[in-house]
């Protein structure tokens, strides 16, 4: 008897449609978010993460309605991220049916925001999303930094120190995305995943770079992640969630079947 490692399909949603870009350039349409969520629920996904990548403010209302529609039909945990900047944004998403919200740039801009959010809504619903890039060169001590704006803007903040600080501020979970790997299908950055999983007492979700089922296993066994997040391998039918779980189970990883 043990806690299962979670498999989390991720929906990047732009203007009400699921999309997935390769390093944020090549956007392919992957469908209606409610239908996609229902499909993953039927497949036995352990959670769903919904990342709103819409830039415009007006589209936020669309997101609220989409989250409501998903929550009315899908009875597994739902995390919503993208554009969460105020306590009111959090309240709207939780009221729409999200179980957790994921905070990214707003935390970098104002680290106290995470503390305020955790104090108001509880750590259990506050996920801090960290976009990290390796900044050390060949042969140097490995070092990763936080990047914002879809990986374009460096901040100079050390990723591992940042994760620890965010947990001290009340983050209940860390969603770690390797910006070097996102969309590449070369597998997670296991170094930064492991460094953060070892450094924080809360669960860590590994994200960015999954191209095959072995990558999911590596995230857990080598990266030490409690959950693995993937988008394109599921969206375009290369693999199903049950295939992923069967593969992991055969390799001794506890999963929910």
């Amino acid at each position: 008897m043990a806690l299962a490692k979670r498999i989390i399909p991720c929906l990047d949603v732009d203007n009400g449609r699921v999309v997935k870009g390769v390093q944020f350039v090549d956007i392919r349409d992957a469908g209606d978010p409610v239908e996609v969520s229902k499909k993953y629920n039927q497949q036995g996904a352990d959670e769903i993460t919904f990342l709103d990548i819409t830039a415009t403010h007006e589209a936020r209302d669309t997101t609220v309605h989409t989250v409501e529609a998903i929550a009315a039909e899908v009875f597994i945990p739902l995390t919503v991220g993208g554009g969460i900047r105020t306590l009111d944004d959090i309240r709207r998403m939780l009221n729409a049916g999200a179980d957790k919200v994921s905070i990214n740039s707003a935390a970098v801009k104002n680290p106290d925001f995470v503390a305020e959010a955790a104090a108001r809504f509880g750590s259990q619903c506050i996920v801090v999303a960290i976009d990290a890039k390796k900044v050390s060169g060949e042969g140097e001590m490995p070092r990763w930094e936080i990047f914002t704006h879809g990986g374009r803007k460096p901040t100079g903040i050390d990723a591992v120190e940042w994760a620890v600080r965010m947990v001290n501020n009340g983050a209940g979970e860390i969603l770690l995305t390797s910006m070097d790997r996102d969309g590449t299908k070369n597998g997670f950055d296991l170094g930064v995943t492991r460094a953060i999983a070892d450094a924080v007492p809360v669960p860590v979700i590994a994200s960015g770079g999954v191209g095959n089922l072995q990558h999911l296993c590596d995230g857990v066994t080598q990266g030490g992640a409690d959950a693995v997040l993937a988008a394109s391998i599921f969206h375009f039918g290369e693999y199903s969630v049950p295939q992923a779980k069967a593969y992991m189970r055969e390799r001794g990883i506890e999963v929910r079947l």
Partner: peptide, 16 residues
Amino acid sequence: SGERLKVPHMGWNQVR
């Protein structure tokens, strides 16, 4: 052994 018991206890566990 590489098995981490994180808190919160978050996720799917078996109930006897």
